[in-house]
């Protein structure tokens, strides 16, 4: 499970970085989204991986991290997703404004060679 998750995060982050470095603003926004997915998974993984473990502490169970999963990274991921989503939406607006004002979807606002 660790390997699959690590490869998944790696592929997402790698594709995200590659897309961010592309010249078209649409590619950049998809790249930013992929990067934020990778980061969200990474935060989640920092709470240690486990299946079928409740994030709620039960007083009848022993206080052991092998019985519970850490609820904090899950809360952090939720916050990060919400903020990331809002920022992506904001970026999308700026991107459309840029497209409207400059007439091109190049990130520098003009086609190369012009």
């Amino acid at each position: 499970m660790e390997l699959i998750l690590a490869i998944g995060i790696g592929v997402l982050a790698g594709s995200g970085v590659w897309l961010i470095l592309r010249p078209r603003s649409f590619q950049v926004i998809i790249g930013l989204s992929l990067l934020s997915y990778a980061v969200n998974l990474f935060i989640f993984a920092m709470g240690r991986l486990g299946t079928g473990l409740p994030p709620v502490i039960d007083p009848n169970m022993p206080m052991d991290t092998s019985v519970f999963t850490d609820p904090l990274p899950q809360a952090l991921v939720l916050t990060a997703i919400v903020i990331g989503f809002a920022m992506t939406a904001l970026f999308l607006v700026v991107l459309i404004v840029s497209r409207g004002q400059t007439g091109t979807d190049h990130v520098d606002g003009r086609e190369p060679g012009q």
Binding site: I20, L32, S36, M87, T88, F91, S98, T102, V107
Partner: peptide, 13 residues
């Protein structure tokens, strides 16, 4: 808008 696009992208990363 042009420098804003760069600024937002860099800060999101």
């Amino acid at each position: 808008v042009r420098s804003g696009l760069h600024y937002i992208a860099i800060n999101l990363v």
